[in-house]
């Protein structure tokens, strides 16, 4: 049976992981390649690398890092963060990335979704949507959730799907960092509405939250960062728990 996916997310700046990472077995805590290897050996189903570098050398550094990651691991991985042109996408796919995630670029220029799908296939196009609830309505936000847009989340999700996105990475900015659980309601709503997989993100605090997002939230995959980095939930334990709860998982 097709399994639900567990996806650790690594934040990258100038080719190094930025958020505090607490791994005793790491020789170099800032080396994303080494961390990626550990996660893939622990049973992560995929990895996401989000680049938050703002410098002009960004593109080159990121492509070099992607080449190293592709050499080190053999599970699928997504690269995102400030990618705004088809040319950027091409460079990163050629360097060995399996999927590319775009966020603000899609909001600013939705045609890029069509262009990416046309040129590289929908399977490598992940559209990241940051959503926040404002007075009972869900709106897409950009700039790490700080800047509201006029796009309603549900309508935008449908549009990116129609334009050829292969997957949606849905982050609830209301839940992100709270450790109080994923945004199951809107995840289920979007998941049920669309024919493409939805990766839920934001709010993971314990193993039960993952079970909930796969059942009530109808998510196909769940992404988290700090709880994995700080070993609050080791991936093998999380997977054993989900398996015991009857959720189809790759052990």
């Amino acid at each position: 049976m097709l399994t639900k996916r567990i996806i650790p997310c690594l934040d990258i700046k100038d080719g190094r992981t930025v958020k505090g990472v607490n791994f005793v077995q790491l020789r170099d805590a800032g080396d994303p390649v080494e961390l990626a290897k550990i996660y893939s050996d622990e049973g992560a189903d995929e990895l996401v690398f989000l680049d938050i570098t703002a410098t002009v050398d960004k593109r080159k550094t990121l492509a070099e890092l992607v080449t190293k990651i592709a050499k080190a691991i053999n599970i699928p991985f997504t690269v995102g963060g400030g990618i705004s042109t088809v040319e950027d996408v091409k460079v990163l796919l050629n360097a060995g990335a399996d999927k590319i995630s775009i966020n603000s670029a899609a909001v600013n220029n939705p045609q890029i979704i069509n262009d990416m799908a046309q040129e590289f296939g929908s399977q490598c196009v992940v559209v990241a949507i940051d959503t926040r609830n404002v007075d009972g309505l869900d709106f897409v936000h950009t700039h790490g959730g700080r800047k509201p847009t006029l796009l309603q989340t549900q309508a935008w999700a449908r549009e990116v799907c129609d334009r050829g996105a292969g997957e949606i990475l849905l982050t609830s900015m209301d839940h992100d960092g709270t450790k109080g659980g994923f945004a199951n309601e809107i995840t289920a709503e979007i998941s049920s509405m669309l024919s493409i997989p939805v990766i839920a993100s934001g709010g993971a605090g314990n193993s039960e939250h993952f079970k909930d997002v796969f059942t009530f939230g109808k998510a196909d995959a769940a992404l988290a960062a700090s709880i994995f980095h700080f070993k609050e939930i080791p991936i093998p334990e999380l997977k054993a728990y989900l398996n015991s709860e009857g959720i189809s998982i790759r052990k």
């Binding site: 097709l2 996916r5 493409i196 997989p197």
Partner: peptide, 13 residues
């Protein structure tokens, strides 16, 4: 009956 129908994407037996 799996919701995202195609492509068949992910880890399977």
């Amino acid at each position: 009956d799996f919701r995202p129908h195609l492509p068949h994407m992910g880890w399977n037996d």
